[in-house]
Nucleic acid binder design. Structure first.
Length: 101
DNA sequence: TGTGTGACCACTG
DNA sequence: ACAGTGGCCACAC
């Protein structure tokens, strides 16, 4: 059996997402060498303790949105953390803060 | 061993 | 742009 479970690999990949960048669940699954496991990536992140140091907020879905109900506390926290790293929510879409306007 | 469950995704109209 | 649909597959029970 693997010394590293898929869960371990996912943690590593999420941890490696640099500040200022975001990645989709499916993208992470593929990077782990497990294409088709996007849902599992979400399941793993869901188990993280609140005080986790993992940058889970840099993980959004393939549509460029947050995978939480807009009124939830998790949504608010992810939104806040992303905004602190140079992103903004344009409607429900996550967009890089930039340039012109 | 079998079934239900998703912090998903790609495709379609 | 948006909603519906089917597919996905490890995991918890």
């Amino acid at each position: 059996m693997p010394s590293q479970t898929l869960k371990d690999i996912i943690w590593q990949v999420v941890y490696s997402i640099p500040e200022g960048e975001v990645m989709s669940y499916g993208q992470i699954a593929r990077l782990c060498g497990y294409p088709g496991h996007a849902r599992y990536v979400g399941a793993v992140l869901k188990q993280l303790p609140d005080d986790s140091q993992l940058p889970w907020h840099r993980v959004i879905n393939a549509q460029g949105r947050l995978s939480f109900p807009p009124e939830s506390a998790s949504f608010a926290q992810q939104k806040a953390r992303l905004e602190a790293e140079g992103w903004r929510l344009d409607g429900s879409k996550v967009r890089r803060v930039l340039q012109s306007s």
